[in-house]
């Protein structure tokens, strides 16, 4: 019972946030709605007995990525002039609905395909609690090479960013 309520509460938060992201005219409020979505997803992870993943979701997505998004929106100086998703009397409105509907249909059909072929997956009550230690043991023995490659990838990201954002001339030059 409790898990059903939790699932619906956090699903509602996630969907409400996601709708806010696409419907609100102000980009900063959109970003704040995305924070709500991230928190809702973290709650769903909690409900799936994965508190570590939930906390990491909060730390990385809600705490770090969304702060970056907010900074980026503020850098681009998007003012409060409302740009609605459907500006009246424009040809592209139909295209927006079409492509959105196509994507939604793709998602829905893949979910239905999965249910048709595999049935509803029910959680295994007898399964042991989600353990970080088990993940760590697998990650540092079987997948150690991927782990080190990941370290390399994480090295490339900041180098690329710094190289791209380094300005010679213009307003940020010394």
């Amino acid at each position: 019972m409790a898990e059903v309520v939790i699932f619906y509460v956090f699903s509602a938060v996630t969907l409400f946030g996601a709708l806010g992201v696409i419907l609100h005219p102000n980009p900063i409020i959109c970003a704040l709605h995305l924070v709500a979505t991230m928190c809702g997803i973290a709650g769903l992870f909690f409900g799936l007995n994965a508190p570590f993943i939930a906390a990491v979701q909060l730390m990385v997505y809600a705490g770090a990525v969304m702060v970056l998004f907010l900074f980026v929106v503020m850098i681009f100086n998007l003012k409060q002039e409302g740009k609605h998703i459907f500006s009246p009397g424009q040809f592209t409105n139909g295209l927006k609905v079409l492509f959105g509907g196509m994507f939604a249909g793709l998602l829905l059909s893949s979910i239905l395909f999965k249910i048709n072929n595999f049935g509803y997956l029910t959680p295994d009550k007898a399964a042991p609690q989600f353990e970080v230690k088990n993940i760590a043991k697998v990650m540092f023995t079987d997948y150690v090479f991927s782990f080190e490659i990941l370290g390399l990838l994480l090295l490339v990201i900041p180098i690329g960013t710094v190289a791209l954002s380094r300005v010679r001339g213009g307003t940020h030059a010394k």
Partner: peptide
């Protein structure tokens, strides 16, 4: 059971109160 990570995750949300207020 994941004390530290939960506290770090929750307190990283603290920045939003300030950003809400500031903006």
């Amino acid at each position: 059971g994941i004390g530290i990570v939960f506290v770090l995750g929750i307190s990283s949300l603290g920045a939003y109160a300030l950003l809400f207020a500031g903006w």
